[in-house]
């Protein structure tokens, strides 16, 4: 399970042995959190950086009329905001979707490891920048794509993000999201989510069985929603190779 963080950081930056060793010390105290629990609420003072090692969590906000908007999905290897401890209070809540393994990293430990390991500091920057890029893409998704493409895009994104942390087998991954959660993420109604998933299944693009999602034809699903993974900035995308050239420190990595 501890591998999730290392794999994620290494999908952005190659890490030295000493950096890997230091990372293992960062994730010593793992705690289990049941599904559908708040990890931190809006208005709370953030003390630690939370890291998800296993399971799914999400960022959300609830409007006065009870309408919930989910702004981000957190999967294994994702920090619940690396620099959040700089802020006085949370402007949104973070809750678990499925049972999660969570690590609470004291802010001091984050400061120290980033100071002692330049490669980790840079990988942390990648994490924050990519979180921002994903949020931008979600805005484009909600504002610019039709419901079927919107949901297909989420499924394509999850495939790549989960693959980067070793959570995908034969284009299948754990999919604990309920239709209501997808609706709250995509700005749609439960009914539209239900119809759309049914339609994607009918087109032979996906299979959803016992909370495992299989993408039956990755290329076709990506083409269906014009999925371009550049915003994930992963090294296993073709943009990754181009990026490595612009970082002299990583040139020997090949």
């Amino acid at each position: 399970m501890q591998q999730a963080l290392r794999r994620k950081l290494e999908s952005f930056e190659p890490l030295s042995d000493s950096a890997r060793w230091a990372l293992n010390r960062l994730v010593l105290k793992v705690r289990q959190v049941a599904a559908r629990q708040d990890l931190i609420r809006e208005g709370d003072k953030p003390e630690n950086v939370l890291l998800i090692l296993d399971g799914f969590a999400y960022r959300y906000k609830v409007l006065p009329d009870g309408q919930r908007q989910i702004m981000a999905l957190l999967v294994p290897g994702d920090f619940c905001d690396l620099n959040v401890f700089i802020l006085d209070q949370m402007d949104h809540a973070i809750g678990t979707i499925s049972a999660c393994q969570v690590v609470d990293i004291p802010r001091q430990a984050i400061d120290e490891i980033a100071r002692d390991h330049a490669d980790i500091a840079r990988a942390f920057w990648w994490c924050s920048l990519v979180d921002g890029a994903v949020l931008r893409e979600w805005l484009v998704n909600i504002g610019g794509r039709l419901p079927p493409q919107r949901i297909a895009h989420l499924l394509c994104e999850l495939l790549m993000r989960l693959e980067a942390v070793g959570r995908v087998t034969d284009n299948s991954y754990a999919f604990p999201l309920t239709q209501t959660q997808i609706a709250d993420m995509m700005g749609l109604s439960d009914v539209h989510v239900n119809r759309t998933l049914r339609d994607l299944r009918a087109q032979g693009l996906i299979r959803l069985k016992r909370r495992v999602l299989t993408i039956l034809d990755v290329e076709r699903l990506q083409a269906f929603c014009d999925f371009t993974p550049n915003y994930l900035h992963l090294r296993n995308t073709r943009w990754g190779e181009r990026r490595d050239l612009s970082w002299p420190g990583t040139a020997q990595e090949g």
Binding site: Q179, D190, V191, N194, R198
Partner: peptide, 12 residues
């Protein structure tokens, strides 16, 4: 009417 809805028969 779609059988997979949580609340078949209700009005949307």
């Amino acid at each position: 009417a779609e059988p997979e809805h949580d609340n078949v028969g209700s009005w949307f």
